[in-house]
């Protein structure tokens, strides 16, 4: 048998080639794989069912898609609001953790640790069952529907994580920055707001975006407490179709797909920013 010593199919025999770091644009190609995957799942499910009176699984999915996407927009809404509330509260808590006042510092620390080490689902239940269905603010009655409560419940762990992101970023700055500012007679407050925090923004952005992606994926927890987001609607759609087992795979694959399409770019961007900032700093 004729064979060239350098031509082989065995990967271990091939010379080592460093994998090129992919640019953001080239990774988009990867997305094409996923719909194909979903397609295969869907068609295989049709094949399994073997029934021809009912609509095929894919056609069924197509019919429900607008509703499911609406549900997903609701997930995005919950995630954006929970992130906004959590970031606001977390910023206050994080700065509180840096306070010179011992009481402020230790209570901020305690709150942060408490909510950071609590399961998100438990916090969600906590918010669902302990918050009233409406609040009375100066005579104006503001209703608190379930999704608002869920948003608050999810904002709590976000708050604690943002608090830690801020504390970590501030502590990661070289102490020379504090010393230089102190030597120039800046007050502590000025040092923090003019010199330390602006430098931290860049460092905080990647972990903050990461947290957002995690939060978005966690919004499906709200289905457990009955909020009409994408998971709840998927369940309802499946029930409406009479609980056909051949629909399970394509429907949930579709839900996975929309989350992937939404979260993956965020993750890529985070990695890119991390790389960029690590070069600068």
């Amino acid at each position: 048998m004729k064979h060239h010593p350098y031509k082989t199919d065995l990967p271990v025999m091939l010379p080592f080639k460093p994998v090129e770091t992919e640019s953001f644009g080239s990774t988009i190609k990867l997305w094409y794989v996923v719909p194909i995957l979903a397609l295969i799942l869907g068609t295989s499910a049709i094949a399994q069912s073997g029934s021809d009176i009912r609509l095929g699984a894919l056609q069924t999915l197509m019919r429900w898609m607008p509703l499911l996407l609406q549900g997903f927009i609701f997930n995005v809404l919950i995630s954006v609001m929970a992130m906004a509330i959590g970031t606001g509260l977390g910023a206050a808590l994080g700065i509180g953790q840096l306070s010179l006042n011992r009481f402020v510092r230790s209570s901020s620390w305690l709150l942060t640790q408490f909510f950071r080490n609590a399961p998100w689902l438990v916090l969600l239940f906590f918010a669902m069952f302990l918050l009233p269905f409406e609040v009375n603010v100066f005579g104006i009655i503001i209703p608190l529907p379930d999704w608002v409560k869920a948003t608050i419940g999810l904002a709590l762990p976000v708050m604690a994580n943002v608090s830690e992101i801020i504390r970590g970023a501030v502590l990661s700055l070289p102490s020379g920055q504090w010393e230089a500012a102190e030597s120039l007679a800046y007050s502590r407050r000025q040092t923090l707001w003019l010199i330390i925090l602006p430098q931290c923004l860049k460092r905080m952005l990647p972990p903050w975006m990461n947290l957002y992606a995690i939060l978005t994926m966690a919004t499906v927890l709200a289905s457990i407490v009955g909020v009409s987001e994408v998971m709840t609607l998927t369940g309802e759609a499946l029930a409406a179709e009479g609980g056909r087992p051949d629909l399970l795979a394509p429907f949930y694959a579709f839900v996975l797909l929309i989350f992937f399409v939404y979260c993956y770019p965020i993750a890529r961007l985070t990695v890119r920013l991390e790389r960029k900032f690590s070069v600068i700093n």
Binding site: P174, G176, Q177, E179, A180, A181, S183, I195
Partner: peptide, 10 residues
Amino acid sequence: GMVFQQYNLF
């Protein structure tokens, strides 16, 4: 005033 080894510019 003070000047540092590591400059410590902002």
